[in-house]
């Protein structure tokens, strides 16, 4: 069952979420990838207010049509690359939601627990569907410095779907799957081998 979230988020509202829930919301999200995270981590100037906001790990394909931005494809990118920077950014800017793909590491999990933030998995590769959720491009920052794929895009989204993968109590869907699949792999490998002597 899809849970519809109220926007803007608060610390209490994200603390009420549980790993494994699929959620939908409408509101504002900011994109950011490696360059932006590095920039914020290094104490660089933040052109927007991330407080209680959402960072989406995404490098969209955008086109300018008659002066207006059009988002063609905007799926999540691999989040683990931001692991060295994410915890500090969550702490400093009190981001409430990080959306990406593939999950994050221990430092981010701990920051989510301490400061009240959740990590959500969007469907990787679903660039067209997620671009359709973008109702409007409110603005773009650091475009010249970072290029279109790495810039900070300010998107107005509607009915954006994702799944809570790491919650504020430290539960992680990935960890569960990873350890269960490890056990399954051990079993599969123990079984009779494939034509050892042909």
């Amino acid at each position: 069952m899809m849970k519809v979230l109220e926007y803007p988020f608060t610390e209490a509202s994200v603390r009420a979420l549980t790993a494994g829930q699929t959620v939908s919301f409408s509101g504002r999200i900011f994109t950011g990838r490696d360059r932006l995270h590095r920039h914020l981590f290094d104490g660089g100037h933040s052109p927007v207010d991330f407080h209680n906001g959402v960072i989406f790990h995404c490098g969209p394909i955008v086109q300018q049509v008659n002066g207006a931005w059009k988002v063609l494809s905007a799926g999540p990118t691999t989040s683990i690359r931001e692991e060295p920077y994410m915890a500090r950014i969550i702490e400093k800017h009190r981001v409430r939601m990080v959306i990406g793909k593939g999950g994050m590491g221990e430092m981010t999990r701990e920051a989510c627990r301490r400061f009240g933030c959740v990590y959500l998995q969007a469907v990787g590769g679903a660039g067209a569907v997620l671009a359709r959720c973008v109702e409007k491009v409110n603005g773009v920052f650091l475009l010249k410095e970072f290029g279109a794929a790495e810039a900070l895009w300010d998107f107005q989204v509607r009915d954006f779907h994702a799944m809570v993968a790491i919650d504020t109590r430290g539960r992680s869907v990935y960890r569960k799957v990873e350890s269960a699949s490890r056990r399954a792999l051990t079993t599969v490998l123990r079984e009779s081998g494939f034509a050892r002597h042909i």
Partner: peptide
């Protein structure tokens, strides 16, 4: 859904081409 939409609209399936 994404595959159908990308085909219909003629936009990249995934932003990472």
């Amino acid at each position: 859904e994404n595959a159908a939409l990308a085909r219909k609209q003629g936009v990249p399936l995934c932003q990472d081409t």
